[in-house]
């Protein structure tokens, strides 16, 4: 994957785009401009089926014979490349409503997941969506591969953004629900800030991975949260409860950053130990790059699971 060739879809740019579908398409196009290989398909000797060619498919997999018979550009699909089931999980807790820049973490995460959904849908993969709000699963769209399903899913994401973040983080029940529903080896992508008092989400992700699912954690954090750049006196208020604190950020920056580093290290280490893909995604990062980064190792994986 070549980042230099992407068009660098900035979050504020994506926000100005009208619909979630448009944003998703723009991001995907930005991420895969000039690329012809599917992000998710590997290679195998055992032919499984044909599918219509779409951008990103390997041209060498075009079955020219079938083209001659059907006059359509059909691509061979092998065993590995059969229909993929993906579960997208969005954390919609109150902490996701923070946005020091152009977009909130919720908007950023939703847009990023929308781009993934659109990409997967275009590949005729089965995509489901779990939105976790305060108190547990907030919305659930089972994975389907029919036409219009992606649009429904993007609509749900758009609705989630519009509804805003709320409540305390309770991602674990949503992930447990995904684990119950995902019977096949599936792709699970979770977008969250992990700002939860309980260590549940990471354990759930490791369990999903242990069941053979391909799990990716998109750790979405705002640049303010990563650097605490404030200079003036601030009264910080919790987004999830009533806590507040009047403090001079300059006085506590070093300690804050140290504790944040410990938090990030713990999250990263927890993912690595459970073979969970971990991606730290600052909300000021271009979305196409974030998307490409999220899919970075996906192309190298031949199979889901194991």
């Amino acid at each position: 994957m070549s980042d230099a060739k992407s068009r660098l879809v900035a979050p504020e740019t994506a926000r100005r785009l009208g619909t979630m579908e448009l944003r998703a398409r723009t991001i995907v196009e930005g991420a895969f401009a000039g690329r012809h290989r599917s992000a998710f398909h590997g290679s195998s000797v055992e032919f499984a089926e044909h599918k219509e060619y779409s951008p990103g498919d390997e041209p060498r997999h075009i079955d020219w014979r079938a083209v001659g018979r059907t006059d359509r550009h059909l691509v061979k699909r092998f065993e590995d490349e059969t229909e993929l089931t993906a579960y997208l999980c969005l954390d919609r807790s109150g902490s996701m409503s923070y946005g020091g820049g152009a977009v909130t973490k919720l908007e950023y995460a939703a847009t990023l997941l929308a781009a993934l959904a659109w990409l997967l849908g275009r590949q005729r993969d089965r995509v489901g969506l779990m939105v976790s709000g305060g108190g547990g699963p907030d919305a659930w769209i089972p994975p389907r591969g029919r036409a219009g399903h992606v649009g429904e899913l993007l609509g749900e994401l758009e609705q989630a953004v519009a509804g805003g973040a709320r409540g305390a983080t309770t991602l674990a029940p949503a992930l447990e629900r995904v684990g119950e529903l995902a019977r096949r080896r599936s792709l699970v992508i979770v977008a969250t800030d992990l700002l939860e008092a309980e260590p549940g989400p990471l354990a759930c992700l490791r369990q999903l991975r242990a069941r053979g699912h391909d799990v990716t954690l998109l750790h979405v954090l705002d640049r303010d949260e990563l650097e605490l750049p404030f200079e003036e006196m601030c009264e910080f208020r919790s987004l999830e409860d009533e806590r507040r604190m009047l403090v001079d950020p300059r006085a506590i920056r070093a300690t804050y950053l140290e504790r944040l580093r410990q938090f990030l290290d713990a999250a990263r280490r927890g993912c690595e130990e459970g073979d969970v893909e971990y991606r730290l995604v600052p909300t000021d990062a271009p979305l196409d790059i974030a998307l490409a980064d999220a899919l970075g190792d996906r192309a190298r994986r031949r199979r889901v699971g194991r």
């Binding site: 409503s97 949260e225 003036e232 006196m233 910080f236 919790s238 987004l239 804050y256």
Partner: peptide, 21 residues
């Protein structure tokens, strides 16, 4: 004039900085 700033990672502020605060 202290700016009111809703903040997600207030745990790190509170937890790490009670004594320092």
């Amino acid at each position: 004039r202290a700016r009111v700033r809703p903040f997600a990672t207030i745990d790190f502020l509170l937890g790490s900085d009670r004594r320092q605060a």
